[in-house]
């Protein structure tokens, strides 16, 4: 089962520069595990140690944000297209919540 995965610029160091890679899996979680077997480290940039999708990474299946499809449990089918985009976010103050989350994002690099 082939699923096309679009990789953002900042994560192409894990795919040898490739913008699009193929993967397999019945769910998004399975797909990321499959990708990590060939592109080691990629999954760790998208999934927290607690096993949840990072708050500030957007993942889409076709035209839908996976947060509305069950996140890592989102079901995939042959021919689906998965797009990964790091959230574009920021702001004037490192208030507590943002700081905690962003530190997490940095730690995952």
């Amino acid at each position: 089962m082939a699923i096309e995965v679009r990789i953002p610029t900042i994560l192409r160091s894990y795919t040898g520069g490739a913008k699009v890679v193929d993967g397999a899996g019945d769910t998004l979680g399975d797909l990321l595990t499959d990708l990590d077997s060939r592109h080691a480290g990629l999954r760790g940039r998208l999934v927290t140690e607690a096993g949840a999708l990072h708050r500030f990474v957007n993942v889409y299946v076709n035209d839908e944000d996976v947060r509305f499809l069950g996140a890592l449990d989102a079901k995939l089918s042959d021919g689906d297209s998965v797009t990964i985009l790091p959230a574009v976010a920021g702001g004037a103050f490192g208030f507590a919540a943002a700081a905690a989350i962003s530190q997490h994002a940095v730690a995952a690099r």
């Binding site: 953002p8 900042i10 790091p86 920021g90 702001g91 004037a92 103050f93 490192g94 962003s102 994002a105």
Partner: peptide, 14 residues
């Protein structure tokens, strides 16, 4: 000037 938050989230190196 970029805040710590801005720097942490900056995801487009180009």
């Amino acid at each position: 000037y970029p805040s710590r938050t801005d720097v942490s989230f900056a995801g487009e190196p180009g």
